[in-house]
Write a protein that binds this DNA or RNA. Structure first.
Length: 509
RNA sequence: GCCGCGUUGGUCAAGAGGUUAAGACGCCUCCCUUUCACGGAGGAAUCACGGGUUCGAGUCCCGUACGUGGUACCA
């Protein structure tokens, strides 16, 4: 019997939640769900300089919007509290001391100035590496070089220090990545990473392994940017808890900017005009707001879908996946190794597909808010839904419902008469005058009846319906767009229909 | 610089030695629709390069190029 699957997402509360972050959560979440496992969110707030107020609550709001709710977290509780690393400070210290006792780590008292001097020296010597490692550590101010009494003296005097891992040279650290297969690192290229900082906080390196062990994490999926520090983590597992208890790793490919090269950043979004964060992020100090996918009108279903297939697919031609389908079909081993450039056009296509696929009641409330924020109050929800049904296949982003549907709620602000004028004549004018009279008397106000009476009248006047329908459309909606004209007339009602025709007729005079 | 990872149309990608190298987005043409969209049909466009291995290589090996990540008392 294998252990219960437990995965985690471990964000730092430093700002907006990036696309790539959401995808990391998604892959973790999917894996947990398909194995009946637990999904944990642990807050990695060990860097007090980068801490941003409100970022933690914001992350949970994003996760909730995406439908990626944790089983355990600072918000949801769980058997391994606390889930905030800043509150686990003492735990890490014990392990750091353990490591020192075992000869796998040491105290380092070097000041920033001394570190800089070391790097300058290495640079002038033409060294290929500027790392604090076995080449230099015996020249530095640490417990490896100092006599035990000297170290104790410094410690007793309260000298600031960090704890560094002691990496042995000439070793190989191999491991298996669920996506990339066998990977091996040469310890000669890895430095003596700081494990415990001078302020007593652990660095990521110590904190992840300690917490992953304590929280019984079985699988660790994270961004590819962590790959180079994997050997440090593996060594730590070996020294502290045993390789047999180590989670299985998977390093996810990066999401790249659409043009040029490099990781997709918030700046690229600003520059190219699309969001990079899941939801609007308001910087607490600058008050600057960065747009999110939610706010520009994405459906969470679409957002999840597009992220899932960015770097993964199930090998079939299927592209539209619901969360339920993803849970059954997702396979971490089929995730791509290479990074994927983000394509906002394709992202919008997913949203368009989901708008069409989902019943409008799933997102009617959000569309209603859009209308109301633009000063159109919606009294009749059923009418709104009917309108949405009529225009949904023309909408890519939620705000499109406003531009595509506004004329169902009020007369068009401008009427494109220049598209009518060239072929307009007295005969057509007379037709519409008669149409008004005819429709005024109409008792059955539905699209089928309207179409019949319209066509009969046209025939009686020896006019082609085709030449009359475009003018009618423009009168009702203001331009050359929208669903069937008679559907529109039927929806907006007799009074509005006639008013709009009269209005344009007057304009045409 | 050093270390790691990667590389199939413009983009996302299928592909596990023998295929006319799928499909999707975007673009173009046509049909449907007397609007726009949806839908349908079609089109242009690809295995980074060089060496091997093999009867045969997008698929395996080596090298090169390019890209990307790391190289912090950040995560």
């Amino acid at each position: 019997m294998s252990k219960k699957v437990r995965v985690r997402f471990a964000p730092s509360p430093t700002g907006g939640l990036h696309l790539g972050g959401v995808r990391t959560v998604l892959f973790n979440y999917l894996f947990a769900r398909q194995h009946d496992g637990d999904f944990i969110v642990r807050i990695e707030d060990t860097d007090q300089n980068r801490f941003v107020k409100g970022a933690e609550a914001y992350i949970f709001e994003c996760l909730q919007w995406c439908g990626l709710n944790p089983d355990e977290s600072v918000l949801h509780g769980g058997p391994y509290v606390p889930y905030r690393q800043s509150e686990r400070k003492e735990i890490y210290r014990q392990y750091a001391e353990q490591l020192i006792k075992d000869g796998r780590a040491y105290y380092a008292f070097d000041t920033p100035a001394e570190l800089e001097r070391m790097r300058d020296l290495l640079k002038t010597k033409g060294s290929s590496s500027l790392q604090y490692d076995h080449h230099v550590r015996m020249n530095m101010n640490n417990s490896l070089r100092l006599l035990p009494e000297e170290t104790q003296q410094l410690l007793d005097a309260g000298t600031p220090y960090v704890v560094r891992i002691k990496i042995n040279p000439d070793e190989f650290v191999p491991f298996t990545d669920m996506i990339r297969g066998e990977i091996s690192f040469d310890t000669n290229a890895v430095d003596d990473k700081v494990l415990l900082k001078a302020d007593g906080m652990p660095t990521y390196h110590l904190a992840v392994v300690v917490d992953d062990f304590l929280m019984k994490i079985t699988h660790a999926f994270r961004g590819e940017e962590w790959l180079p520090s994997a050997p440090v983590h593996i060594l730590l597992w070996q020294y502290l808890f045993g390789l047999e208890n180590m989670p299985q790793w998977a390093h996810l490919p990066l999401i790249l900017k659409p043009d040029g090269n490099g990781k997709l950043s918030k700046r690229d979004g600003d520059r190219l005009g699309f969001p990079v964060y899941a939801m609007d992020w308001a910087d607490p100090v600058t008050k600057e707001i960065t747009k999110g996918f939610k706010e520009i009108g994405f459906l969470p279903e679409a957002f999840i879908n597009l992220l899932a297939v960015l770097g993964w697919n199930d090998g079939t031609e299927q592209e539209i996946f619901s969360m339920e389908e993803l849970i059954t079909k997702f396979n971490i081993e089929k995730v791509h190794k290479g990074g994927a450039k983000f394509d906002f056009e394709k992202a919008k296509w997913f949203n368009h597909e989901w708008i069409k696929k989902l019943d409008v009641s799933h997102y009617a409330e959000r569309v209603k808010n859009i209308f109301e924020s633009k000063g159109i109050s919606i009294a009749d929800d059923a009418y709104l839904k009917k309108v949405m049904e009529l225009v949904k296949e023309r909408c890519t982003l939620l705000p499109d419902f406003f531009t595509q549907g506004i004329f169902f709620f009020q007369a068009p602000a401008t009427v494109d008469t220049t598209s009518i004028q060239p072929k307009w004549d007295e005969k057509k004018n007379m037709f519409f005058v008669e149409l008004i009279k005819s429709w005024q008397l109409s008792t059955l106000w539905n699209s089928a009846e309207l179409e019949i009476s319209f066509k009969e009248l046209a025939a009686a006047n020896q006019l082609k319906t085709g030449e009359l329908m475009l003018p009618l459309r423009i009168m009702l909606v203001g331009g050359k767009f929208g669903p069937g004209v008679f559907e529109i007339a039927s929806a907006i009602g007799k009074e509005s229909t006639i008013k709009r025709i009269e209005y344009t007729l007057a304009l045409l005079q």
